[in-house]
């Protein structure tokens, strides 16, 4: 009997552990996938270092001092007067009951308070996943490296090879359908 209880408890614990590891993994995947899909990469780059570019000058997420709540708010609301867009649909609607972003509604977003709307809206859980992804995988990290690059892009592309010692390469083999 005792044995059975222990076995059951161990099984529950083991499953629980596996479950939480899986949950963590899938949370990280959601964060990474959202970071790519929502075009954070367009300005902050895959590695989060930001810098100038066609999307404007984006801040470094590696060096940011923001906490989780502040990151969630920045992604949700955008930053007035900068290129950082708002990612939650309707947060500045004039007729909304509450104005969660700086107390601004659409009519306030003129001139230097302009906030662009993101090309892709996110759900609140996706915004949280992105914030967690930034906190865990980007913030406080030093220069981007091969392992981080491969974790982001996988290893099927040459995209990370500038982080490797120089090697020679084969060109891809084209294929024809007819």
């Amino acid at each position: 009997m005792m044995f059975r209880v222990n076995l059951a408890a161990t099984l529950v614990m083991a499953l629980g552990f596996l479950g939480s590891a899986q949950a963590e993994e899938s949370e990280a995947q959601l964060g990474r996938a959202t970071y790519a899909r929502a075009n954070c990469v367009g300005c902050h780059k895959w590695h989060g270092n930001g810098g100038g570019g066609y999307g404007g000058a984006a801040l470094s997420l590696r060096k940011t001092q923001l906490d989780r709540e502040q990151i969630v708010k920045t992604v949700t609301c955008g930053r007035p007067g900068t290129g950082m867009p708002s990612f939650l649909r309707g947060v500045y609607d004039d007729d909304a009951k509450e104005h969660p972003c700086y107390d601004f509604s659409q009519k306030d977003l003129t001139g230097d308070n302009h906030v662009a709307e993101a090309g892709t809206f996110l759900r609140p859980n996706e915004i949280e996943a992105v914030a967690d992804y930034v906190l865990k995988n980007i913030m406080g990290h030093g220069d981007p490296n091969l392992a981080e690059c491969v974790a982001f892009f996988g290893d099927t592309s040459r995209v990370c090879e500038i982080y490797k010692p120089k090697t020679s390469h084969q060109m891809p083999t084209p294929s024809t359908q007819n």
């Binding site: 592309s157 995209v159 891809p172 083999t173 084209p174 294929s175 024809t176 359908q177 007819n178």
Partner: peptide, 8 residues
């Protein structure tokens, strides 16, 4: 026909 160069 379609030739796909398998661009990276």
């Amino acid at each position: 026909w379609k030739m796909d160069p398998k661009t990276d």
